[in-house]
Amino acid sequence: MSKFSDAATTSHTLSLAAMEEASRIGQRTADIEHLLLALVLSEQSAGQVLRSMGITLESARAAVNEQHSAQLASLGVNSGLPPQGRIVFHETGGYEWSDRALAVIKRASGGGRRGTAADVLGELMTEPSGMIDQILRRLNTAPDQVIALIDEAQHFTAFKPRHSIRPDQRSGSIEAFIPAAVEQVWDLLYSPSRIPQWEPTINEIAGNDPLGRIHIGERWSARTRTQRPDGKQLRIKPEFQTQDVELVACRDATLIEWQFTFPESARANIKRIRIELEPAAGGTQLHIHLRWERNANRVVHPWIELLLRPLVRFGIWMQLSQLSGGIGRVFR
């Protein structure tokens, strides 16, 4: 994986998480404290370092809130902050980084560094306003301690790309951290009726969940999403508005694989989403694998396929990113 794509994917993941956090409190500018929250959620070693120190999303959010409240109280504003709500990033727009947060991210990919989440965290620890230092004190730690742990983690573990895309095979995989126990994440992923909560193309699954266990080969009919969260209509061809969802692999609290087909289309490819779950400090680490299986009725044009590879690579990465984001949002 090139330095550019490492930095670009890290930047995208952190931007999404930070802006979602900003959206919860009615802000459209993601600042350094939202960047810190995004790093607590990172699947990379930066997130693992913070979580190994006992910092959870909840405790970090509380520390940020307390720090702002204390700063406002120092000005005589003692009314407390307005209540925090749910993530509304996808129903709203106009999001941007603050200048100082953007500067931290840019510095993290300069000077021979790869722009990984650990590089961003290292830069954030030395931000000059003192805000992050104060927040970390509320979490019973300090920037120096975090920097020492990042150095240690980088010394002992060589950098491994956390995602890999194979456009020639129309497949890819991504790692994700979910701030919830394995049992909770499993309940979400195992329940057919909850698929619309995390799979962005599914709007509704017909019928209720069966009372007992579900079995490999069982199928449910689903409606494709035709409206974006912000209310805008999506143009979906009629043959793609219905999907069949089938359980193709399942190992309790460890692995699940769902297959999505379009029964009304003779030429549609088949989508498979395979998710492996592993307990991690403060939550669950997921390995998400997405694969589009070619429909045998489709004619293959090798040259066109070759030309389209960059688009396919981007499309698969985007879909993986949406899946990991969707699963994470359920628990935030």
Partner: peptide, 13 residues
């Protein structure tokens, strides 16, 4: 000054 930054964010919100 840090407090003013918090106040500015609160105003925006």
């Amino acid at each position: 000054l840090r407090a003013i930054a918090s106040l500015r964010a609160l105003t925006e919100r």
